[in-house]
Nucleic acid binder design. Sequence first.
DNA 1: GTAAATTAGTTGAATATTCAACCAATAAGC
DNA 2: GCTTATTGGTTGAATATTCAACTAATTTAC
Lengths: 143, 143
Amino acid sequence: MTMNNSPRVSLLLSQALGLYRLRINALLIQHNIDLTSEMCTVLRILWKKEGRKQQELADILCKDKGSITKIIDNLEKRELVERVTDAEDARNKNIVLTAQGKAMKKKVVPLLDGFLDSVIDHASQADLEATRRVLTGIIQKLK
Amino acid sequence: MTMNNSPRVSLLLSQALGLYRLRINALLIQHNIDLTSEMCTVLRILWKKEGRKQQELADILCKDKGSITKIIDNLEKRELVERVTDAEDARNKNIVLTAQGKAMKKKVVPLLDGFLDSVIDHASQADLEATRRVLTGIIQKLK
DNA sequence: GTAAATTAGTTGAATATTCAACCAATAAGC
DNA sequence: GCTTATTGGTTGAATATTCAACTAATTTAC
């Protein structure tokens, strides 16, 4: 008789992501940064390339556009980004960074990168590659 | 010069889990099952071993006890579980399944298991083991 | 044995998420 | 050129999540 006691990948995903959010939010509060894990994820995309429209952000993050509307609301409330209606196509709103939003990058990126690296420093490169391969496959399949 | 374009594991996690929830919720609606992905996760634990207390559920799922309170509220509203105050220690509430809650197992488990297996059927056993190893390590580290 | 500390659960506020319904702007079809 | 379809964004309802403050029950310390 063969036993399969491996926990479901989906369960591990849910546990790991929940803990990530928890620790990242605590880390941000600890450094007096008024942001959440999710707001940082959106900001990181904008820090790479500013002026993306909301639907692009939703596509990149595999989220509903309504979700993005509310995160942008919260970022705008903190005066880190602004919505700029596209001159070419007035349906689009391009999200641009304010000076404050740009300045935040220097504080947040090193902090989060350091943390995120430390979380996976126990794993071998081969295992990390396998993990990325599996997760990417899952994402492709579900998208 | 070496380039590292690997996406962050944390980002892949967030994308994959979001898509899982999306597809599972759609699958449940499609089969006229009035449950969410999260409710199923809690039910699956109870189907394995009934009568757990809320704090145990929170520990297993790495969630805040407030989260569990609300999921149990929703399961109770659907008359699938009941809170039974422990006779030994009146602080604990043991969550037991109703007849309906037990019956639901036959419908939900094969459906979800089939789906969850299909999502990872593209991956090799070795890659899946590596993925479980990495995720388990992350969970240990963050807990 | 009573006071203090701990543990289990609930509640309300803030954020996140999806969905469906909606509005506005643009694109396609005829 | 109009009508229709599509696309981008917002909104409100329902659920999920955490946190901090709270209540109630039990345990620990003296």
